[in-house]
Each structure stands twice: as C-alpha cells, then as structure tokens.
Design a protein around this nucleic acid. Structure first.
Lengths: 260, 260
DNA sequence: TGGAATGAGTGCGTATTACGCACAGTTTGT
DNA sequence: ACAAACTGTGCGTAATACGCACTCATTCCA
C-alpha cells in the first residue's frame, strides 16, 4: 500500500466516495460498507460525519441516509450568486493586460451589437479610449466576430440577416460572403481579429467565452494602436487569448473541450 | 479530547469544512491551514484529496484551489433528474396506504382542476376507483383544497375567480365565502377534508406538498368509503398525512418549517 | 405471541495513518 | 539577482481511524 506517499487522505477520500454513492442512491451503513469495502462501523461513522455536516439526511420514511438536496442546491446557489461574470473576468483581463500591456475588455452580444461590460485601460500613455458601456456593431469588432463565429449556425444566420452594413473605415467588411469568410477563419484560428475595421490605426484580438452550458455568452480581448499591435503580435496574443478565455470559461464551469 | 467517542471522523470532517470554505472563496494550502488551524502540509493534503475527487480545481490563472462548478452542478443535475416527484412519492403513498389501508394518491393543480398523477389502490375489497389521470374541480376534492388553502393569497383569489361552482353531491360547497371558510380551517389544521363533497359515501383527507423553493406543487392523501373512513379516522389520518407530506417535501429539499 | 435473525449504533485495543516538522524546489517581488 | 514566501514532499511519531465484539432495537416468520 506504500505505492503513493499519502498525498491523499484515505478517510477523506473514502468519505467523498461515500457522498457520491449516496447521491446516486440512498444508503445504509450496511450497504455503504459493502460498496466501500470497509467494516460496517466505519461506514456508519462516515455517514454520521456527513450527517453532522448536513451533506446527508436521514429519510424519516425508512431511516436511510439520503443526499441533502438543500445542501447541494445551496452549493449551486452560492456559485450562481457569484457568477456575475463581468466581475469574475477582471482577474483574467488583468492577466491579459499584464501580458500585452494593452487595454483588455469583455463584451456581450445585444441584438446585432456588442456591448462592453468590463474594461481595463492599457498601461502605456497611448492607448485606446475606455469603452465600458460602449456599443459597437458586431461586424466591425473583434469581440463581435469572436461571438458570432462560434454561435450555432441558425442563430448566426438570423443575426446576420438583421445587420445593416455600414463601413466605419475603408477596411470595414460590408459584404456578407466576405464576412462569413472572416468568421470561418475566426473559427479555424479560435480567435477573431479587427484589423483597423472599426478605427484606423486600431487593432483588436478577441476570443469567445462560454458558460457552463457551453453557450457563447461573451468575448474577451485586447485593443491597441496598430503601431504596437503589429500583425505578428496580434497572432501571438490571439493564441494566448484563446487559451485565457478557455481558462475563464472553465472557471465558470464550461466543459474543457481540449482535456475533458 | 475524549469528550465524544469518535462517532465523527476527524479528517473527513475537516475535509468537508475545507470544501465549504473553498466554496466561499478560493483557497491555498496556506490560507486553508490558517482557517482550519492545521499545518500547511495537512491543508495541502486535504486540497489534494478534494482535487483527486474533482470537488475542487486548480485555477490556471493563479494556481488557487477553487470549487469545481461542474461537479456541483452535476450533483444538482443528478438530483433534479431524479425529482420526478410523482414517482418519488410512491414510497410515501405506500406508507400511507399501509397505515390506513385506504387508497393513497398524489395530485397536482391544473388551472382550476386537480389531476391525479399517482395512485395506490386500497387494500380492501371495497375501495375507491383508481384515479390516475382523473381530473376533478379544486373545490370538491381534499387535494384541491389542500393545495388551494396554502397558495399565496393573490394566486388563490385569481383561481377562485375562475371557478364555476357546480354541486356534485348535496354536500358540495358552492358558496365562495363558505369555501374560503373551509380553506381557512384547512390552513389551521394543516390538512384538508372532503366529506362526501365529491361522491356520496366517499371521504378524503389530504395535505400539501412543497418543493425546494417552498412552493406548493401538489397534495397527497387517502380516499375511502365513509363507513370505514369515519370522521374520527379522518382527523387521525389527517395529522399523519400532514406529517408524511412534510417528510416528503423535505426529502425533495423543502424547508423544514418545524425544525429548521 | 414469541423467538430468531438482521441490522443499527457503541466501547475498546491496536495497527494504521494522518499529522506536524523540516527540507527542497519554485515562483514572486523588489 | 537576491530574498522572501509559498508549494509540495520525506519521515518519525503520536493521534486516530479502523475492525472486532457486544448491546439494543426492529423485523420477520412460525
């Protein structure tokens, strides 16, 4: 048994296993002992400990130990209460700014626009204007493209049919097929680029953020002057943002497509 | 330390406390050690065990140990998946029938009717007809009154205004004020009675069932011939049904108004 | 109705194991 | 670049968690 130098606490481990077994179906000291391969007295003590912490209850009907629904729901509720994701994103935006030096921001989709819901200004004297609360058409911004590119096709088509194409710079994409091509490239890369399509001299990179149901709920990215944010840097940062937004998504319970 | 003969497992207890602390806010071995009053190495081993069971994750951003949102949600999901409460009620109905010998059933509200969604026939040769799927006006049935009596006043008023009063026996209550009086008595007692108001010679007793949000979602009760189900028995069983439906509600996560 | 059987809960002694200490390795900040 | 702080690990020991055996309660069957 000395294969692994106790970095895992046996009795805690057993207790957690017991909790999962009770979740599946209610248990008695007897039944749990059999499933865990321990003495009945040990199983009893485990159940009693779980009981003391309100993780399980005794069913008054038949005295079986059952999972405490309220406890589990209170756990879930405690989590959802903290899932104000614009705020949750702040540390990730901070890391993004630290890595790039540029302004980092988070935006959500609203109709055919994106709205910036969190923003950290760049570190340099020259940086993009703060855009907290700012609204932009989806088709000009990197965050917009990042979101749009990863939505289900039906939803994407619906939104694209509502878009009123108006150029903001001479690089703005205003052709549906060209834009669909850009979205395809975004999906391939995993991050979206705004190459002076919103403002001349400003580039952006962004990647989508998913919630625990794997739905696209936002995008995060950086914006900066094209002089610093060269196309080389855009792609370097893009790969990083893709990774970081995935980390952020996972922290909110999204499935880990790469490892999980 | 020998106050209590270890009916609680210390290390498991500590681990569960740790889990709740991590739920509140992410932790490190250091911070957890301080909060639990143990050595850092112990805190590390606890976190590592929780990690091995996927109850916590390491935040890739700062390497902090954070609650695993997916795990908690999967627990909640596993529970809600089993919360097909008509089925869940079966063992409770079984106990009810065992106690009374009469037909036991569960009904939900639909508009101004109740619909029976689970039913266990009585044990005697003479018993009420099976009523699975049967629909009845709220104002004639005990289950209807049990539900109506405990709804919020606004909802109750709304439903009562929609009721079309039609007598089914000469005991059927068809007067709004009289009915409101009956509902008041039901609230006071904690259980509702149908004293030959639906069919002559048939009595019923029922009490409300609540979900985890403390909302009334159904009522359970027994029905039987008035010859066996005397008024004395009706009240005896009523007290029992009140208790049993509370147990059932609690098993689905409802707040325990009496003890909790 | 009574007697056997099954299972819950508890005291006790011991062998396990979980703990704290000390050290190594790594990262962060100045 | 150096120091400080923290994570993660080996080790010895003392605490403790475990299994055994027992009591008590409940159920089942005659």
């Amino acid at each position: 048994m000395s294969e692994n130098q106790s970095t895992v606490i046996q009795s805690l481990s057993r207790g957690l296993t017991a909790l999962e077994l009770v979740l599946e179906q209610s248990a008695t000291p007897q039944s749990l002992a059999k499933e865990l391969g321990v003495d009945r007295s040990t199983a009893y003590r485990i159940l009693n400990t779980l009981l003391a912490h309100d993780f399980v209850l005794r069913d008054p009907l038949d005295d079986q130990y059952v999972i405490n629904v309220r406890k589990v729901f209170s756990f879930a509720h405690s989590i959802t209460g903290k899932l104000h994701f614009p705020t949750l994103a702040t540390p990730y935006l901070g890391k993004l700014r630290q890595k790039t030096g540029e302004a980092a921001s988070l935006a959500v989709l609203q109709d055919t626009d994106v709205v910036y819901v969190n923003h950290l200004p760049g570190e340099e004297a020259i940086t993009v204007a703060p855009m907290l609360g700012v609204r932009r058409p989806v088709y000009v911004s990197a965050v917009g493209k990042a979101i749009l590119a990863h939505l289900p096709e039906s939803e994407r088509s619906r939104l694209l049919s509502l878009v009123e194409w108006k150029p903001m710079t001479d690089k703005t994409i205003t052709d549906l097929d060209a834009f669909r091509g850009a979205l395809y490239a975004t999906r391939q890369r995993g991050y979206a680029i705004d190459d002076e399509e919103t403002f001349e001299g400003v580039r952006c990179v962004a990647a989508p953020v998913r919630n625990h149901r794997d739905e696209i709920i936002a995008a995060m990215g950086v914006s900066g002057p094209a002089t610093r944010l060269t196309l080389n840097r855009v792609h370097e940062y893009g790969a990083y943002i893709r990774r970081l937004s995935l980390d952020f998504s996972i922290s909110m319970g999204a499935p880990d497509a790469e490892h999980g």
